[in-house]
């Protein structure tokens, strides 16, 4: 069916293979080949952050990553991250960080990374970390609260 070589990489802790064109977007591979539709396409050009995933532990935009560059690497999507950090999911739900939910998966991935890197991030640091994730519903306040509430 295709002459593309098989690309092997790790997705959410499992070895996966994909024999799409290496130029294919990681986002399309995740959504349409692996059925991991948690990563959303809000713009397709790296502006909105709804497709954020972790690549070797770093938040990246899966709409801008050619799947060929993932060979041998580790990808984590919101589906796995939400399982790893149920407290974040709970906080986002309770503080009003979620409305329509279309930006939420990307925001969860970014906030997870921020919590790992800087558990006591100030509001300014949260703003900076989230600058690549557009939200149109919440005015961001509910999202800030998800990290700030309970800081003490």
């Amino acid at each position: 069916m295709t002459d593309h070589p098989t690309l092997a990489f790790e997705v959410n802790g499992e070895a996966r293979e994909c024999n799409a064109s290496p130029e294919m977007r990681l986002l399309d591979c995740l959504r349409y080949d692996f059925g991991l539709t948690g990563s959303k396409e809000g713009c397709g050009e790296g502006e909105c952050g709804a497709c954020t995933v972790l690549l070797d532990g770093q938040p990246v935009l899966s709409c801008l990553v050619p799947v060929g560059q993932c060979a041998g690497r580790r990808v984590e999507t919101v589906e796995a991250i939400a399982e790893k950090d149920p407290e974040l999911v709970e906080r986002m739900t309770e503080t009003g960080g979620i409305q329509c939910g279309a930006c939420t998966p990307g925001i969860v991935v970014t906030l997870y990374s921020l919590r790992q890197a800087n558990p006591e991030a100030s509001r300014e640091e949260i703003r900076r970390a989230l600058a690549g994730n557009l939200c149109r519903c919440t005015g961001y306040e509910g999202i800030f609260r998800a990290l700030e509430d309970g800081h003490g």
């Binding site: 939400a82 399982e83 939910g101 939420t104 998966p105």
Partner: peptide, 18 residues
């Protein structure tokens, strides 16, 4: 808490293209 919150935050809610 809104009942759809955990599914939305986990990427499990099904939107039109999902």
């Amino acid at each position: 808490p809104r009942p759809d919150g955990p599914a939305k935050a986990s990427g499990l809610s099904q939107y039109a293209d999902d």
